[in-house]
Design a protein around this nucleic acid. Structure first.
Lengths: 232, 232
DNA sequence: CCGTCAATTAATGTATGCGTTATTGGATTC
DNA sequence: GAATCCAATAACGCATACATTAATTGACGG
């Protein structure tokens, strides 16, 4: 058990069957339990999760809109597989939205208390790299940082969009985690963004973050090309 | 009849009942036939569109994810009403995404033929302002320009996100159309962006567009405040 | 007269059945 | 032997019936 996966949804007890099916399906997709490209059937999932086809169908629709699967008429649903082109799209979107989120947050001039979550994530990232590196822990802290940042920016639509593409790229990030160099610089960049925000330097915060995202995208693209990965 | 509304969807004959219900519901919401804040019932819509509740429900889920309505458990659906805060959010998102779309398009160095749609929209906007201004025609051309731009940028995810928030703001734009000054400058800015793209000046294209969006957002915000509009 | 509780009703949430369609496999013919 | 056609089956799309829940109304008690 790697630990409870952090997702963009606040997972509740889910009194509605549809919500439970949705949450579990999403979890399974992000956990790579249903591999990319896999076909899943409404009736299979219904039996597996002890529900009828109706809530499963509704969950499929929601997940399709989130880009995590594709409903193929008469063929069930196909778990989305990301091509290198999809990864490029995702990073272009993040390079646009995340620096904006940083800028919005920085403009609010938040105090240290408001950024406690971000600072904790920075601490966790640094701790994960001390001694024997714990990449899983680092990735969890990284994810927490970005989700927190999206939430703090004060724009729910912006936050939702960031989390959506972030979820889409989740598996790819986890997969390439061990193929990348140790994320020492990445960790430092996170810290630098927080400091720039605290210093009230809006433009610098935005700039650091944009470079951070750009470098991250480049790293991932390089790995994908070097390994000739076509789908993930 | 004002004319067929341009939406982000390619409206097909819709062999599936769900698609037909979805398309008509969306059309009615954008046309302001269901006013913001209105409650609609599954059974009402089903009867109205001659379908059963099942496809209506599925359409509700899709429209909820697009932010056009909100499913209230046990209470049907409420048509989304935009607060001034929502308008701010939407313009922040557009100010982030649309300049990125322009940049991506400009980097491809497209020739004049590729931009034919954009140029036609510019012509239409200018024509709509000659003699007696036709604001409806101008708005249609403006909408066509932005949708086209999103499509041309080469990033489907980015395009989808732009169209989504654009649709959310559609009614607000139509409502404030007659309250704004004649969009002469706006029209000129559109033309200038196209010229900058053709000239291969990526940075300038992005900059013009960012200013265009910023000014547009400011105009709208001012109107909303001046008229004390709370919901639209 | 007001407040509270219970019952009824209305609308959603879920399950299931039926019709449609597409795919696959087998058989027949060229 | 290969290709085509037909039939059977499997899965979905939609409709409908049933269960659940929340709200509203009315009655009763304080």
């Amino acid at each position: 058990m790697i630990g409870t996966l952090i997702t963009s949804d606040t997972l509740q007890p889910a009194r509605r069957s549809t919500d439970a099916v949705y949450a579990q399906l999403k979890q399974h997709i992000l956990d790579n339990r249903y591999p990319p490209g896999a076909q899943i059937l409404e009736s299979e999932i219904a039996a597996e999760l002890d529900a009828s086809r109706t809530p499963v169908r509704e969950a499929f629709v929601r997940l399709q809109q989130e880009g995590l699967l594709e409903i193929v008429p008469r063929h069930g649903a196909r778990i989305s597989a990301l091509s290198p082109g999809d990864m490029r799209e995702i990073y272009e979107v993040l390079m646009s939205l995340e620096p904006t989120a940083v800028e919005l947050l920085a403009r609010r001039k938040p105090d240290r208390a408001e950024l406690a979550g971000l600072i904790a994530s920075c601490d966790a990232m640094e701790a994960a790299l001390e001694g024997t590196p714990d990449l899983q822990a680092w990735a969890a802290a990284d994810e927490a940082f970005h989700l927190n940042l999206a939430r703090l920016c004060g724009n729910k639509r912006l936050a939702g969009m960031i989390m959506q593409v972030w979820d889409q790229a989740h598996r790819a990030r986890m997969f390439t985690l061990s193929l990348r160099p140790l994320p020492v610089q990445s960790t430092a960049e996170h810290r630098a963004v927080v400091e720039a925000i605290l210093a009230g330097n809006v433009e610098r915060a935005r700039e650091i973050y944009h470079e951070h995202r750009k470098r991250g995208g480049l790293e991932l693209t390089t790995i994908i090309e070097r390994h000739g990965i076509q789908r993930l």
